[in-house]
Structures are given as structure tokens and as C-alpha cells.
Design a protein around this nucleic acid. Structure first.
Lengths: 155, 155
DNA sequence: TATTGTTATACTCTATAACTATA
DNA sequence: TATAGTTATAGAGTATAACAATA
């Protein structure tokens, strides 16, 4: 049996020194996830940049723009334009925080909630592509490990 | 004991609906890894965009530019400018492929190899930051799971 | 005809600094 | 003084189309 015809061309890179580095594996996995996510969100007029803003607002966390910038690792000025866009579409609203009148708390509209629920289904379905080789237990394990990387104290 | 003072502010997002989505965890983990990687590579005049090119070339895989575009998920025109930069610094060289004179095979110079070995050490050290909460077994497990996402057949 | 590398171009994203209003 | 949001701007990254050389 000719094993060389079985091994796909991808294995050439999969076995490379680079592919042993977590940073490369994270980058490539994220690139695949990004492409799938953007494709799924296009139908809702959202992108992987705007969707997380809508998601956190619709999760009733009442985040301020500053908090969004921190958790999404965006510059505060970028949050401004993303919030402008979503507010312009009537999906979320800015509310001046009573306890600190500098801050603006973000809350969802009914239309925002409705769109979010549909968009979220699409995002979860789109993840199926990159994750297709992992069973349910492996996906949970991957999520738990990644959560500890993403929210490592001090980062 | 006041447990609210122990739970860091990050847990507010860590427990959000968004933080259960693999795509978000990948994006945030990658963002942290990217920042750490760029900081470590700055001393070598490299970035997280150029380092993988040098790495695959120095791993003696003799990749063509087209192959680099595929594995690094870059447009072929982006590979041109990255290769221009590394070749201009005398770190790699273009060689016309004898079997297909359209293709250019990339090979390292002695200077390229030397820089790569140092840069690689710095990259591995920089990964320590985001991964600090995972022990050796967990890092291996994470890498194995991510490799199956990054190189899922059909992607 | 199709593919590799290249050039050119426009668009998106990111980083920085300065400004305002509040604290 | 310091911080939240805002504006403006420049730089880096990305996507697209067209072209020459080769298959």
C-alpha cells in the first residue's frame, strides 16, 4: 500500500516545527474561525468585530464602552464606531451611567435582542466547520483550556 | 468571608454567554498571543506576520510562495512583500524551481538560520505569558486539539 | 486555459494623540 | 490629576483585479 498517496499535503506543514508552537496553532485556528464567522454573520449585517459587542450587550451585562474595549481588546475609539453603527441600526442604546456621568452603559433594544438570537444560532452553526473533527467532550475540553488562556490573571 | 472581593472583574465576562463560544475564546486567546509574540519579535526586526515565513523556510521545507500563502492563510500578494522584506535583509533567498519555472522555492541563508533560532527561543518564551496557568500536560493537550482544528481536512 | 508570482489599488483594521466632560 | 468617551489621522493589514511568464 502506498502510504504517500494517503498522507495529505497538509501533513507537510502539520509536522513542521512551526506547527508545534501554540501561537501558530492559535493564529491559524482563529483565522479559520474568523472566516467562517464572518460568512455566517454577513446575512445579519454583522461582522466578527460587531457581533461580540451586540452579544455582551444582549446578555444584559450592561457594559460600559470602556469595559467592552477591555474584554474585546479593542481601542476605546474603535468601540465608539462599533457602538455608533449598532445604535444607528437601532439594535442597542447608550445610557448615561447615573453613578458616573462620564460613562455610557449599553443596553439592547427589542430589535437588537431578536437579531442577536438569530445571529448567535448562525455563529454556533458556523463553528461546526472548524470543529467538525472534535466530539462534544473534546470541544468542552478545548473551551475550558482556551478560557484559562483567554482569561489568564494578569492579562 | 467576602467572596465578591475575591472574584476578579474578569469573571463577569468569563461567565458570559459570549465566553462559551469557541470563536470568541479563540479570538481573545489569539489576541493575547499576538501581542506577546510581537513584543518578543521586535528585538529581531520581525513580526508575527514575518516570523512564520522565516520559520517554515528555515525548517528546510523548501516551500514555494504559493504554499506559504495557503498554510499561513495569506494572499499571494502579501507573501510577495513579506518575502521581499526577508530577502532584502539577507535572511532568505528565492530560487526558481527547476521542475516548474513559474514557482519560486524559498531557502534560508546562514544569517537567516541564526536569526530564526534566536527568534524562536524568544517566541517560545513569550508564549509562557498566556499559557502560564497550564501545566505541561495541559499545553500538549491544547496543542493537539488546536492542531486538529487548524488542520481540519477540507479547510 | 490555468497557475505562479507580481504590481497596483482600495478597503478595513489598528494605534496614537488630542480634546471635552466629568470625576 | 485622572478617566470615559470622542474625534482625527496615519499606519498596518487585507482583499481584489489585472498582468507577464510558464505550464
Amino acid at each position: 500500500m502506498d502510504t504517500t498517496s494517503i498522507s495529505s499535503e497538509a501533513s507537510r506543514w502539520e509536522a513542521s516545527t512551526l506547527a508545534s508552537e501554540l501561537s501558530f496553532l492559535l493564529a491559524r485556528s482563529n483565522a479559520l474561525s474568523l472566516a467562517a464567522g464572518n460568512a455566517a454573520l454577513r446575512a445579519f449585517g454583522l461582522k466578527v468585530r460587531s457581533y461580540p459587542v451586540l452579544a455582551l450587550v444582549c446578555d444584559d451585562l450592561r457594559p460600559t464602552q470602556r469595559e467592552l474595549a477591555d474584554v474585546l481588546r479593542l481601542d476605546p475609539s474603535q468601540v465608539v464606531s462599533l457602538v455608533d453603527e449598532l445604535e444607528g441600526r437601532g439594535l442597542i442604546e447608550r445610557q448615561v451611567d447615573d453613578r458616573d456621568r462620564r460613562a455610557k452603559v449599553l443596553v439592547p433594544t427589542a430589535a437588537g435582542r431578536a437579531l442577536y438570537l438569530d445571529a448567535r444560532d448562525a455563529v454556533l452553526a458556523a463553528e461546526e466547520g472548524p470543529l467538525r473533527d472534535l466530539d462534544a467532550a473534546e470541544r468542552t475540553l478545548l473551551a475550558d483550556l482556551l478560557r484559562r488562556v483567554a482569561f489568564a490573571p494578569g492579562e
